[in-house]
């Protein structure tokens, strides 16, 4: 059996012919396995969806209950048989509910890791490396210039800025699912116990995280029903990254644009977006984590998808590991 007999790229996404299912397809299909709830992986309109219970809940929060006709919750670590193909979900460490999908048949094991990170994160379960024949890796930050610094250190930079600029409203741009809650959790872990204000787009997901026992402390909507502009001076407001260029941002006193993203490693990116305080916080793997993970899986073949495929393929060649880019469509570079 060739690896491509078990999983192969199709225009719709990664397809398993014997199991007749897709993993994270870009268009509605009959049967989809979903790694996690980010919108470029979890789309609405599939007939049946298999994902972790958290991912199913998150999809329902985002798309409404009718996002799929049939849904099945996958228990982490418990194999499921799909038309003779053994499928196992294991934690990916990316966001709450995120999973790698292990696909096995006739002694061939392929791991579709989805998006993953290796840095500890209190808002989701840690990544579990699995030995496999083929490892399918993301490459969002697949260049040797991406080296994510310690996340607590980055959060302390934010807290330092609050002391340094107590009159300014610190607007922290963070992706609504995962990053926003991780930023808040990190603030709490570092002793920040004031109320944190959140943009409306973050409310449902943050409540869902809290319902799962993730301590986010007191959160308030960032609205101005009673007070005036100065009410938010010196406070932290977490919002989607697009919000600080919206008119929404005008309600705050002297806003300081802070952006929590792996892209903030590149100064020009921060500059272009008018970010004053870049926080290098990523839910993806940096270069060192990507290459370390490939070695840990002991895969003899690596498939590289969404991101800087070419550099990671080059690294594999230099390390005598067979590698190829998958060229799957539909993944957003900026969705971080």
């Amino acid at each position: 059996m060739q690896p491509s007999d078990l999983l192969k790229p199709m225009p719709e996404g990664l397809y398993c012919p014997p199991g007749d299912f897709f993993i994270d397809p870009a268009v509605p299909v009959h049967s989809a396995l979903i790694t996690h709830g980010h919108s470029d992986h979890a789309r609405s309109g599939h007939h049946s969806v298999l994902a972790t219970a958290e991912t199913l809940d998150i999809m329902a929060l985002r798309y409404g209950d009718g996002f799929a006709a049939r849904r099945q919750a996958a228990k982490l670590g418990s194999p499921i048989d799909i038309n003779g193909v053994k499928v196992t979900f294991l934690p990916a460490g990316h966001v709450l509910g995120s999973a790698q999908i292990v696909v096995e048949k006739n002694g061939m094991r392929i791991v579709a890791s989805g998006d993953y990170k290796r840095m500890a994160d209190a808002t989701c379960l840690p990544f579990e490396p699995v030995r496999c024949d083929v490892f399918i890796t993301e490459a969002t930050f697949g260049l040797p210039v991406f080296r994510h610094p310690d996340d607590h250190e980055e959060i302390r930079r934010l807290m330092h800025s609050l002391r340094q600029f107590p009159d300014r409203t610190h607007l922290v741009g963070a992706y609504a699912l995962g990053k926003a809650q991780r930023v808040i959790s990190l603030l709490r872990q570092n002793g920040y116990d004031r109320t944190i204000y959140i943009h409306g787009a973050l409310e449902k997901l943050s409540s869902y995280y809290q319902a799962h026992g993730i301590a986010l402390g007191t959160l308030f909507p960032a609205t101005l029903e009673t007070g005036n502009k100065d009410d938010f001076a010196g406070e932290i407001i977490v919002c989607p990254p697009s919000a600080f260029s919206d008119r929404w941002a005008r309600r705050f006193s002297e806003p300081m644009a802070c952006f929590a993203s792996g892209w903030m490693q590149i100064r020009q990116r921060a500059k272009q977006r008018g970010v004053e305080l870049p926080l290098i916080l990523s839910d993806h793997s940096d270069w060192d984590a990507l290459t370390q993970t490939i070695l840990e899986t002991e895969a003899s073949e690596v498939w590289v998808t969404h991101g800087r495929e070419e550099a990671l393929v080059r690294w594999c060649e230099l390390n005598q590991i067979a590698a190829q880019p998958l060229h799957l469509v539909g993944f957003e570079e900026e969705a971080e």
Binding site: L143, V145, R267, Q268, R308, E310, R314, W315, L318
Partner: peptide, 17 residues
């Protein structure tokens, strides 16, 4: 590796960085 360096420099655009 010079190829990895070239990909990186091409992406970042600034030599010092």
């Amino acid at each position: 590796d010079e190829v990895l360096f070239a990909y990186s420099y091409d992406y970042v655009g600034d030599l010092a960085e």
